[in-house]
Amino acid sequence: MPPIIHVAGLSKTYSSGFSALKNIKLDIGQGEIFALLGPNGAGKTTLISILCGIVTKSSGTALVGGHDIEREFRATRRMIGLVPQELHLSIFEKVWDAVSFSRTLFGLPRNDGQIELILKELSLWDKRNDKIMALSGGMKRRVLIAKALAHEPKVLFLDEPTAGVDVELRKDMWNVVRGLRENGVTIILTTHYIEEAEEMADRVGVINKGELILVEDKKTLMEKLGQKRLSILLDQPLSTLPKKLQGHGLEIADGGKQLQYRYDGRHQKPDIAGLLRGLDAAKIGYHDVATTQSSLEEIFLGLVKQ
């Protein structure tokens, strides 16, 4: 099946001269949940905005459902629902009006039953006659989601959907997302939380400083991510592992000058104390202990700090 989103050689330079996206290449399959992971300012919103028609690309190709986003904008935009990062709503409106506005704006006939369904699913039904200004931040975000779903999109973009959102909404939102996925809707979300990408996504793309650093299946990525290595620098080189130390999962490295131990730092707490007691018991001297992690992990540490 051809990808529902195909992006190649996509670049964006803002009029200020700032290069926000550099030669992005990305294919997303139908029905996938794709997480775009990157720190603030990485270019996530820019990429989404280009696909939705809010920002114009500087160069490159972008297809949605096989249609060019500029020449066939009607076809592509009809397929896309967007939940923006900011709470952009006209506050004087009532919830119901705001949501049904979105449906007919996209060219679909009015369908009150559909709007009712969406509002109920997002726990907005009781608030349907409330003015948006009377709603809390979380409720406003629900309204944005309802608006994005009002025209029954095939592709849903969620730009930092959980930023500043309570647990309740997060749960509701993931339920909606799962329900949509069962109906074949493709979901692209941006986040700077690894946990969120891990919880929801099938595939993850990591973006930093306008470059898509890698795109991986979530599983593969999490395995790579988790890799940590504990190195014990020995006083005397070893040729074979003493009997007493077998069973700890140690390997000899660097021509016998090091013992190394690999573990998954995300899910495993290594018994370092036990290991070192074992070394003492075997009378093996060491002068340093170091842990290292993949360069990926370093990127992510950067992300988490944001």
Partner: peptide, 13 residues
């Protein structure tokens, strides 16, 4: 107010 995003992302010329 920022609500222009919806007009720009809609299939409206």
């Amino acid at each position: 107010s920022g609500t222009i995003y919806e007009y720009l992302s809609a299939p409206v010329s």
